[in-house]
Design a protein around this nucleic acid. Structure first.
Lengths: 345, 345
DNA sequence: TTGTACGCGTTATCAC
DNA sequence: GTGATAACGCGTACAA
């Protein structure tokens, strides 16, 4: 049975020390300190006492005493999104691998929330702040955000941008251009030439790189009018679908392929194309970018560009904990994966 | 240009107070305290000083001084999973609505990690610990976990289980039984009678409730041999697919429907059925449970049981911050949504 | 209403 | 090696 429900005081290092019959600093050295210059007999007693009392270090207290925490703060725009949740999971895993906990905050795509959250996160005294992804509904008050991050940086914090570069801080990203270019070349080689390219209505460098990479790839394969078919609908499943629905039958009929800069948009386009009575892939091919895992059950399986999240996350965490600013940009690999949505044309 | 890169000290409340020409407690009262008994003139000066200096409260310090933080800790088994990420997002949103930040940790389905993480989370001194979802690869050392959580509870922390009830703590869950029962009744009414039921190989109460609800629903509609077709493959997409692949053609042919206790498993079954040459829904219907949003692009659209995440998350957060233990169990709604994967049979 | 003094749990700097 | 003692930034009795 449980004891009295009256909230007791948590077990502190002091309790452990007293219980073990040593001084509190000694207990600290055994349990949390690095230099192990404690007699083995004391050592054992302290460890035993901690175990018996169920001691857990008070992290806030440690953070304050040390002046730094073992936490990295992660700011993502969405979490209930397969792409961002995969990204968050990978970053958390990498952080864990180097002994860091991760605190996540979600902006929900609102730029003003981003500023507030950075402020809060900064208050957590994290080792680094990682801002992943972007895409806003309202235009960001960039200057205020930059100021806030600079203040954080000035106090020794590290700021790392993942898959975005709209702010003047270190960035890690995929090789968007190469991935899209390679995809375009492979598709062109199997007969896809008339391609509709759906970029992002929101100006995002990563997405622009994907558009340009795709166009460059087509041009290299001799497709000359590629740039004529680039559009920038709203950056979402909905936006892509609605754009496709807005096309005329004639416009649709002459297309070989729709390439969207994200899988999400590609699926929106796919939904729209089907609503217009087109069969995928018999009448028109569809390709995306990201290779979201949860799309394995979509039929037909989607041709896309696989991005190496693992490498990206590793690089991001590496930069988050490495003080010297090695500005060598090593984009994470991205390579095309051709599937059923784009059979040879 | 940035100033000297030499890490400066973060701005403290003391700095703000000095800058504003007031004492530190006064600054505290203005910026963080609740009772607003500060002269308006001082008030203004403090706020202005804080703004100019870019002050952010040191959360660890606040937590220590107050003895409690404004954080709730969330422990989920997976984050790169549409179901859990949706759950996490909703819980975070609800927490935010009551002014609480959320700290997420991921067990990656390893029970031993769960114990470690609870220990770490406890160290954060959160207001509450919410454990969402379950499903382990290795069997949990339940007693150690329970002890750890009890210690936390004894110091005034709150423990809330979401969608699991394998531990002796407050639980919030969906109305699994009613949702599955209703689904079964609706399906039976449109002709589905020979139903294969895929439960969870891992013993989980929620999943068992779904199985029983479904069977009860069938029985109410006059299907008598319902219980004969219940199986418990590994609790995953893979497990469901492999189970379906292990069936004989004869067994498959006589089925009208496959019901799996999660959408994830339903899709695994669907993949397996297709590999066996069956057309969905012409040859056999498929239904799941959860109504994962990201499945909107699956063809045919999946019949499932929609779960009201919003209500569940709200209830979970409510319990996490409400001291009195109101043990009235109010399961969150779950109701069937019939889609293309189960046309009238 | 405002300021002084102290405590929160921990680490770090010292003497011993 | 070990143990006093002083920080760390903030909240809060208490006194003024």
């Amino acid at each position: 049975m449980r004891g009295e429900p009256g909230p007791k005081r948590p077990v502190t290092l002091d309790d452990v020390a007293r219980y073990a019959g040593v001084s509190q600093p000694t207990a600290s050295r055994v349990l949390n300190g690095s230099a192990r210059k404690v007699a083995e007999s004391y050592r054992q007693r302290v460890i035993e006492a901690a175990r018996e009392l169920g001691y857990t270090p008070n992290l806030p207290a440690q953070a304050m005493a040390r002046g730094t925490s073992r936490t990295i703060a992660l700011l993502v725009s969405l979490i209930a999104d397969p792409y961002f949740s995969a990204m968050a999971a990978e970053i958390m895993k990498q952080a864990e691998a180097v002994g860091l906990h991760t605190s996540i905050a979600v902006t929900d795509r609102q730029a003003d929330r981003e500023l507030d959250l950075v402020r809060v996160l900064r208050g957590q005294q994290p080792r680094a702040i990682i801002l992943a992804g972007s895409g806003y509904i309202d235009p960001p008050d960039e200057q205020a955000l930059v100021d806030e991050l600079h203040r954080y940086q000035d106090t020794g914090g590290r700021v790392v941008l993942v898959s975005r570069s709209d702010l003047p801080f270190e960035t890690v990203d995929f090789d968007n251009h190469a991935g899209a270019r390679q995809l375009a070349r492979e598709l062109a080689r199997i007969g896809y030439r008339k391609c509709l390219v759906l970029g992002s209505g929101t100006p995002l460098l990563s997405m622009q790189q994907r558009v340009e990479g795709f166009l460059d790839g087509l041009i290299e394969e001799g497709v000359t009018d590629a740039a004529d078919h680039v559009h920038h609908p709203e950056f979402s499943w909905k936006g892509a679908r609605e754009f496709v629905l807005s096309l005329t039958d004639d416009q649709l009929r002459e297309l070989h392929l729709v390439f969207a800069v994200t899988d999400d948009m590609a699926l929106g386009a796919l939904a729209g194309l089907r609503e217009r009575g087109l069969r995928i892939p018999e009448d028109i091919g569809v390709a995306g970018f990201d290779d979201i895992t949860t799309l394995r059950d979509v039929v037909p399986t989607l041709t896309t560009v696989h991005v190496d999240l693992h490498t990206l996350a590793k690089e991001a965490v590496h930069r988050a904990i490495t003080p010297d600013r090695d500005l060598t940009r090593r984009p994470a690999p991205a390579y095309p994966v051709l599937r059923a949505s784009t059979p040879p044309h």
